[in-house]
Structure formats: structure tokens, C-alpha cells
Design a protein around this nucleic acid. Structure first.
Lengths: 210, 210
DNA sequence: GTCTATAATTAGATAGAC
DNA sequence: GTCTATCTAATTATAGAC
């Protein structure tokens, strides 16, 4: 559960893998705030402090840049949401589920760009969504779905449609961070405080677990 | 609870108020699918089968067209989600809350463009969000917030942060219809069937009410 | 590999014919 | 009021200098 990603990339020697990460994070920031159509490669380049021609040299098209950024996003999620260490710690089934719910809320708070990109592409539909569904979302849901079903068997979760439950859990967890600007505008609440994040995690646990 | 909006607009004589509604609905469709930046006035005009110059004559700018469409959207929601008739019917407090939850899920299924526009603007932030927050969202939340709090007092809802609960309830209800394309791509499920809608409403009631 | 110049598209806005 | 033509600005994509 690193608050900052592990310091050493897996490329060979320490040298230079970092610029790639800076660029992809810049791409995630801009794509997530503006949507694919509203984002411009030039703005991403400016934010990452590289020349826009350089981006085209490495990624060729706006579309391939987007795919590289999304792949980076989901790979980072897999690293940060890896619960195997917690599972090995002798927690009970219920404690493990509670741990998973809390860690997911913290992940959503730490990386609001994830939900923002996923939601915007899901709304837009089309080729990018199909690609993201096939290469990334299906992998995650293929693990979470059966896990939730086993929790239902054990009486830890209400027995309801598992698709409804997965999306309900995900969107409920993401909501305040996905919509932080609206919540600030309407209610004056700052959802980025540790206090709010932990309170929201507790709310999710209280409402979903039995 | 009309599935189709009431047939008679409030303009004078039967004559012509309908073209306006057709245009605004076309605007909602395009803005909700493409986002403000990705939508083009020309595409909206084509979808409504009017000339794009004509739109500019009536609404001047893309921004003013968007505001007119959003105002139409929230006014329609106020009409369709009016629970006063149900309240007068002698339902218990719990039945009334359950009725409200189910009606809201049905509204989300009927008008997925509402959540899509609200979410996209909330992600984007900026002047349009501020305007929508001040003129529309605050009105709705100003009614729902105290209502949920009174339900908490009566033990109908869990006692949690009311802002968390409102967004959790809204996003959980909207989720399948907001993300219908993703759910179809990942799980092959059609969320537009009456069966799914009623099942999802039941899930919301089961998880939130006590 | 990096940066600049330019072509080709597209969209918002404007003007004016009808 | 409606429709067409045009202006202007921004963007993706490409070519080529360095």
C-alpha cells in the first residue's frame, strides 16, 4: 500500500525510464479532466515539459498515447491494490473484505483520474471503450466478481445481482473523488482530507458489509 | 410518474413549442455522449434536423445552448420526480422512502443523459459546473439532504455523513445506466430491460434502507 | 531523438441573402 | 426566421532540418 509508487522502475539500469512515466501521468491528468476529445496532445506535451513532436515520435497518434497511458494506469492499480500481502497476514474473511473496501476507497482518493477516465470512456462508448473493456476492465472484474460471489456465500455481502453489486460498490467508492469539484461547489466540502477519506471508507463498509 | 412527458407544453395555444423541445433533447443527447468539448453545434443541428445557423439565431452561443438544455433537463426532472402525489396517498414514512428510491432508479434508467451530463461537467469543473451547481444541483440537494437526515433520525437510513450518503445513493442508482455501454462490453448485460431496472431498484432498497 | 514548419480538418462565430 | 458562405482559431498529422 505505497502512497508513492515504488521508487525503482523495472526497466534495466537506473538510467532513464522516468520521463516516460512523467509523460504518461501528464496524459492521464489531461485526458481525465478534459476527456479524449477535449484533450490536446499539445497541452499534454506542455504539462510534461516536452515537445509535442517528441510525443508523436514515441507514440505516433493521440489514440496510441491514450492506450499507453491507460495501460500504465491499470498496471499501477494492479501494483497498488495487490492484497496478497494482507491475505497472507492471517486476517479473517471479513477483515480481508473490509481491508479491500478501505484500500479501494484510498486508491480512488489517491488516483481520481482512474475513475474519471473510465467513466468518460464508458459514457462515450466506441473503440476505446471496447479496447479498455477487453484488455483491462475484464481482467479486474474477472477477479472481483467471483470474490464478491464467494463473500455472498459466506454471508458477508447481501445476495444480489453481482453485476449490480460490483458497479454499485465501485461507483459508491469513487463518487466523492470523481465528483470532488461538484461537491466543493455545492456543499463546500473538501473530500481530499484524510478525515473525509477514512470516513467515507467507513461509510462504505457500514453500508455494504453485514 | 409519466413514462412520456405530459403531452401539452405550457406555451400558449397548441401551435408550436415542440421544435424547441426536440432541439434541446438533441442537444442533451449529443452533449451527454460527447461532452461539451467533444460536441459540435453542427452535429446537434443535424440530429434535430435544423440548420446550424438557426441554432445560433435562437441561442447565440454553444454555451447558452448548453445552459438552455440543462435547464430543460432539470425542469423535466422536477416534474417527473414530483413525489407529492405519492406523499398524499397515506404511505408510511418507510414506504415513501422506498417509493422515492425506486422512482429515482427508474428516472435514471429513463434519462441516462442526466447523469452523463452532470458527471462530465463535474469532472471538467469550471464555469459551467459552477453555474449548474448554483442554479440546479443546489436546489435538488437542498431538498434531498434534509429529507435523508430526517430519515436517519427515524432509523430508516444509517446515520452517516449526509453528503457521502447523498452521492453514494445517487451514483449507486445511476451507475448501471450511466455506464450501460461498459457493462454491455464487459459483461454482456442489457441494463435497459425492465427486469434489470426493477432488480437494481430492489438492490438499492435492500442495501440502503433498514 | 528533438524541434520547427506546414498541410489538412474541423468547429465556433459572423455576415448577409432570401 | 431560415439557410449558405466565409472568417478565424485550434488541432491532428506529416515532413524535414538539426
Amino acid at each position: 500500500m505505497p502512497a508513492t509508487p515504488s521508487a525503482r522502475p523495472r526497466g534495466r539500469a537506473g538510467h532513464l525510464e522516468r520521463p516516460r512515466e512523467v509523460l504518461l501521468q501528464a496524459a492521464l491528468d489531461v485526458f481525465s479532466r478534459k476527456g479524449f476529445a477535449g484533450a490536446s496532445v499539445r497541452e499534454i506535451a506542455a504539462r510534461a515539459k516536452v515537445n509535442h513532436g517528441s510525443i508523436r515520435y514515441h507514440y505516433e497518434t493521440k489514440d496510441k498515447l491514450w492506450r499507453a497511458a491507460v495501460t500504465f494506469l491499470f498496471e499501477r492499480q494492479a501494483r497498488e491494490m495487490d492484497v496478497s500481502t494482507a491475505a497472507a497476514q492471517g486476517l479473517s474473511e471479513r477483515e480481508l473484505l473490509e481491508h479491500f473496501c478501505r484500500e479501494y476507497v484510498r486508491y480512488c482518493a489517491r488516483h481520481p483520474e482512474h475513475a474519471r477516465i473510465a467513466v468518460q470512456e464508458s459514457i462515450a462508448g466506441g473503440a476505446r471503450l471496447e479496447w479498455m473493456a477487453e484488455h483491462h476492465i475484464r481482467v479486474v472484474h474477472g477477479a472481483v466478481g467471483p470474490y464478491f460471489e464467494s463473500c455472498m456465500e459466506r454471508g458477508l455481502l447481501a445476495k444480489v445481482n453481482v453485476v449490480s453489486l460490483m458497479y454499485l460498490h465501485a461507483m459508491a467508492s469513487q463518487a466523492p473523488f470523481l465528483l470532488s469539484a461538484e461537491i466543493h461547489a455545492v456543499h463546500g466540502v473538501d473530500v481530499t482530507s484524510d478525515e473525509f477519506i477514512e470516513q467515507h471508507a467507513q461509510t462504505i463498509v457500514d453500508l455494504l458489509l453485514r
